[in-house]
Design a protein around this nucleic acid. Sequence first.
DNA 1: GTCTATAATTCGATAGAC
DNA 2: GTCTATCGAATTATAGAC
Lengths: 188, 188
Amino acid sequence: MNKAERQTKSDRTRAAIIAAAQAVFAAHGYERATVRDIAVRAAIDPAMIIRYFGSKDELFTRLAVFDLKLPDLSAVDSNQIGEALVRHFLSQWEDGANSGLTILLRSAASNEYAAEKLRAVFVEQVMPGIASVGGRAGAAERAGLVSSQLLGLALCRYVLKLPPLVTMHRESIIKQVGKTIQRYVTGR
Amino acid sequence: MNKAERQTKSDRTRAAIIAAAQAVFAAHGYERATVRDIAVRAAIDPAMIIRYFGSKDELFTRLAVFDLKLPDLSAVDSNQIGEALVRHFLSQWEDGANSGLTILLRSAASNEYAAEKLRAVFVEQVMPGIASVGGRAGAAERAGLVSSQLLGLALCRYVLKLPPLVTMHRESIIKQVGKTIQRYVTGR
DNA sequence: GTCTATAATTCGATAGAC
DNA sequence: GTCTATCGAATTATAGAC
């Protein structure tokens, strides 16, 4: 067995741990997720997780990241910014490869590290995007209002699973919530 | 010492446990709150908590209740319903005696019992109130949208403590979010 | 690289003295 | 009614055999 093959096997184990940890953290949040749960799901030994990632905390830190991937809003038709933002947000949320937001939101209510990470996402990603459209004046407040609606939507639809929001059609949500975001961003 | 005095002392201990438990559950959520933490804050022995309430679960169940105390919306000026709802919601949230909502929201993301309780609040308190105003048609969806904005607001302002929403003046929030709720409830 | 065995904590809960 | 002492279970993390 040469070095490349050993690396391949090691990488497979590492990938299995990451995939399992994403699923378990996203399903139960930081506190409820256990190293053993993750190990069972990855079909490996719990000790391997510590060996590969050092600790549960380090593993969580590695997965509790989120890139909103906001498009350049100044290039969007200014009457469509609300709907475009909601559509983009829902897509990012439902993108399985971007599970960081689910993990963060599930954990943030009872985990200060996750809460701080969410605040950082707001300051570094949401605020600048909003400011680039409606100007600097009151950008922080407008971004805050936008975040309250979008995070609330995600909380109700994906975490709490509030019946009407779970079953509500994607396009209906985009239309209704889009109007709200449009007003928060542009004032109209 | 007569019976009334013994009861008084017992009641004081019980009240101290409840007050401490509300504070700790509201601050850290169900998973992170420990019986020992509550005992320290109440300045009593941990064993007393079990003796008085049976288990941590039973104590939590007793505190994880929330009465939104929605006013009769059909009596409110139909153009003022949005602002009235936001104002009422913020007041209820900031009412120290009504800590159930904080406790529920802090716990619901990683605790299925708390999530179920929040869904029940929605079905039993929010839905009927919304339906009493805009009529039955689409009442569930409209109530869902209202909940997403109000819970998102509470999440950002009181739990995540997102800077702009924490410092934002109460009346500004009522005005801005009020317009959103108004449209969700009445369609205009 | 992997797993067995176990250390070291922490937690909820109980038993029993006072 | 209250507290001391402790149990038993669950958890993260480590040591070391294979």
